[in-house]
Amino acid sequence: MTASLTRENSKGFVPGLPISDREDTARRLLASSARKSYDPVIEVDWDAPIPDDKFGMTPEWSTLYGTALWDELTDEQRIELTKHEAASVSGVGLWFEILLMQMLLRDVYGRNKHSSHVQFALTEVADECRHSVMFAHAGERLGMPGYGPPKYIHHLGRLWGHYFRGANAYASVMAAEEILDMMQRDFMRDERVQPVTRTVSKIHVLEEARHIRFAREEVTRRLTGASRTRLAIERVNTAVVVYFVVKSMIHPRVYTNAGLDRDRALAEAKGNKHHHDKVRKSGAKLMTFLDSVGLIGGPSKILYKKVHLL
């Protein structure tokens, strides 16, 4: 069952997207999971050599691509930098997957465990558990140090994990997953990139497509009828999470560990218009969705602009 909705409703905000029946959606996603899921232990050739001439990720996604510093680097230095950047992205992805699993388990704790909705949520937890192990092993296989968000963001993640619920939690998770997805779609197709990065990216993109749909529909469903006050709170909360995730993607230690002048690298990355434009164009679909469900407006726009999504 699908109902067409508009924003005009005296009882509260109604997103400009159709809402599907929760159980129908879950049953379809469960069927998709049964048809096509991956075990990284088997699907990724963890014993394959790491080629010296392959980038850690698509070079155009490097925070320094297009800068004067990038032009000064040798091919070997560029490859080393992108390996560290790929490991940093994976480290942040792993951190957020763990938060996502906590949120899903809390959300279904009091629900009917026989429902397809809960069963898909548990299926997603199983997927995310495998993804977390996969990200950790990928960084290890590339010989990179363990990266993750800065300590203060890591601690803020604990608070988010305890207190955020409902639409905001799903919106934050969906947004973070889409940000990672928009990069990995390029990684998995790029023959210049390390085979391990390409395979890990492919598995994550294919399985996250189900998770993103699940989250999008939950956000749309849970915001139906939301008051202006609640929408204002949801907007800010979601934007704050997205802001911290994007800011955390590349740890400052990446530049030092890649043998670069950290201060100069940070300065050039901060002013890199090529990277800013790439983030904005790749995030257009995400921003369109957030706007359609009323999650862009007011102070949230400032945060999205700061991380170049608007």
Rank of each mutant, 00 (worst) to 15 (best):
M183Q: 06
M182L: 04
D181F: 02
E178I: 06
S132T: 11
Y147K: 07
A171M: 07
H154S: 14
R158D: 15
G166H: 02
H137D: 12
Y170N: 03
L122Y: 14
P149Y: 06
L156E: 10
L142K: 00
D181E: 05
G139P: 00
M174K: 06
E128I: 09
L159M: 14
M182A: 04
Y152W: 15
Y147A: 10
A126L: 13
L159R: 07
Y152Q: 09
C129N: 10
Y170S: 05
D186Y: 08
S132H: 12
P149Q: 09
W160S: 03
N168A: 14
R165E: 10
V125M: 12
A171H: 04
E178A: 03
G157H: 06
A169K: 02
L122K: 07
Y147M: 12
M174L: 10
M144S: 07
H162L: 15
P150T: 12
A167M: 09
L122P: 10
L159T: 11
K151L: 15
H162V: 11
D127K: 06
G139V: 00
F135V: 02
E128Q: 07
S132C: 09
A175Y: 03
R141K: 10
M182P: 01
A136G: 09
R141S: 03
R185Q: 08
M182V: 05
I179E: 01
D186T: 05
W160P: 00
V173P: 00
A121D: 10
K151N: 14
